[in-house]
Computed example of a mutant assay.
Amino acid sequence: MSDALILDAHAVLWSGDRDAVAGRPLLLLLHGYGADERDLLGLSAYFPEEFTVASLAAPLAPPWPMPGRSWYPIDGLDGRNPAHVTAAAQAVIDWVDAHAADAASVGLLGFSQGGAVSLQALRLQPERFAFVVNLSGYATPGDLPGDAALAEVKPPVFWGRGTADDVIPEFVIEHSTTWLPEHVDLSGRVYPGLTHSVSEAEIADVRVFLEKQLERA
């Protein structure tokens, strides 16, 4: 993937006034594989109202007949290549620099692929993002230049996943379980019986986490 990815600014959906970013905490939503910018926006009703919420559209189209968008390929011999995750994360950073540079703070909430990209963006620029919420996602294997700085900063990360999730490969779950506590201030929960999805209990936990981030600001 030699060409830089660019997110479609016109596809971004906002929970309120898109011009009300300046001076306010911003929460970016990154959907999963085969979904789109509409998928997670409904969750914003359960989040603290202090946040301006923007739901981004991933830059790629998955192979037919899969609907929606994708942040990086997962099919073929080059599927789940860490470089693809990094390229998607850089695209998120570029969008923030172009459209939300005046936000008081920026947090990321991603589901599945979106969770992996959120963590990768945090690794690329540990000082840029206030926190990450990683739902049914993972930390991408491999080293990045910012990992040492990340381990020094240890920004807060919430990781939620279900015991019945059979989508995310076990080896990346094992990697994430070891890697995350060494690099971030990790909190979260494993939800019995939850599949590759989000539950009411998980969203309630996410709200508590977000409220704590507002207190820290």
Results as ranks from 00 to 15, higher is better:
70 S>N: 15
154 K>W: 03
120 Q>V: 04
39 D>N: 12
67 P>A: 10
175 H>R: 02
33 Y>E: 06
44 S>T: 03
157 V>T: 02
51 F>R: 03
69 R>Q: 14
34 G>T: 12
162 G>V: 06
13 L>E: 13
106 V>H: 00
212 K>C: 08
211 E>Y: 02
200 E>K: 09
45 A>D: 13
18 R>I: 14
27 L>N: 08
17 D>E: 08
209 F>K: 06
38 R>M: 04
148 A>H: 05
3 D>H: 15
38 R>K: 11
115 G>V: 01
175 H>I: 01
19 D>V: 13
5 L>D: 02
129 F>V: 06
40 L>C: 09
173 I>A: 13
162 G>N: 05
31 H>A: 09
95 W>I: 07
169 P>H: 06
61 A>I: 15
37 E>M: 04
127 E>C: 06
123 R>W: 10
189 R>H: 15
85 V>F: 09
37 E>I: 08
10 H>V: 12
213 Q>P: 05
25 P>T: 09
26 L>C: 03
192 P>S: 06
105 S>Y: 06
3 D>P: 14
118 S>R: 04
167 V>W: 08
206 V>E: 01
204 A>L: 06
91 A>H: 04
36 D>H: 02
140 T>S: 13
70 S>T: 15
127 E>R: 15
196 H>V: 06
202 E>R: 08
4 A>H: 15
186 L>G: 06
46 Y>H: 15
70 S>M: 15
154 K>D: 03
96 V>F: 06
76 G>R: 05
22 A>Q: 13
211 E>T: 02
75 D>Y: 10
62 P>S: 07
92 V>E: 07
201 A>H: 13
144 L>G: 05
79 G>C: 01
140 T>C: 14
37 E>C: 11
145 P>S: 09
31 H>F: 09
130 A>T: 09
18 R>C: 13
114 G>N: 12
10 H>G: 11
32 G>E: 04
117 V>M: 07
4 A>P: 13
28 L>E: 06
191 Y>A: 00
67 P>Q: 07
171 F>S: 07
166 D>G: 01
129 F>Q: 01
110 G>Y: 03
123 R>V: 08
16 G>A: 11
50 E>K: 10
27 L>W: 09
164 A>C: 10
205 D>F: 03
150 L>V: 03
203 I>C: 04
31 H>D: 08
90 Q>R: 15
133 V>F: 03
138 Y>I: 04
44 S>L: 06
206 V>N: 10
10 H>W: 11
207 R>G: 00
210 L>S: 00
150 L>W: 02
178 T>I: 13
144 L>N: 10
100 A>I: 03
71 W>T: 03
202 E>K: 03
153 V>G: 03
54 A>T: 15
11 A>E: 11
85 V>W: 07
63 P>F: 12
25 P>N: 12
20 A>Q: 13
161 R>E: 12
84 H>Y: 14
102 D>N: 13
92 V>D: 03
25 P>L: 08
127 E>P: 01
143 D>C: 09
24 R>E: 03
168 I>H: 03
132 V>Y: 00
7 L>D: 00
90 Q>V: 02
212 K>L: 13
169 P>G: 12
42 G>K: 14
146 G>H: 08
70 S>V: 14
43 L>S: 07
13 L>F: 04
119 L>C: 08
108 L>Q: 04
63 P>M: 11
153 V>W: 06
170 E>F: 00
134 N>Q: 07
144 L>D: 04
87 A>F: 07
38 R>H: 11
149 A>F: 05
109 L>M: 15
59 P>D: 07
86 T>C: 11
58 A>N: 07
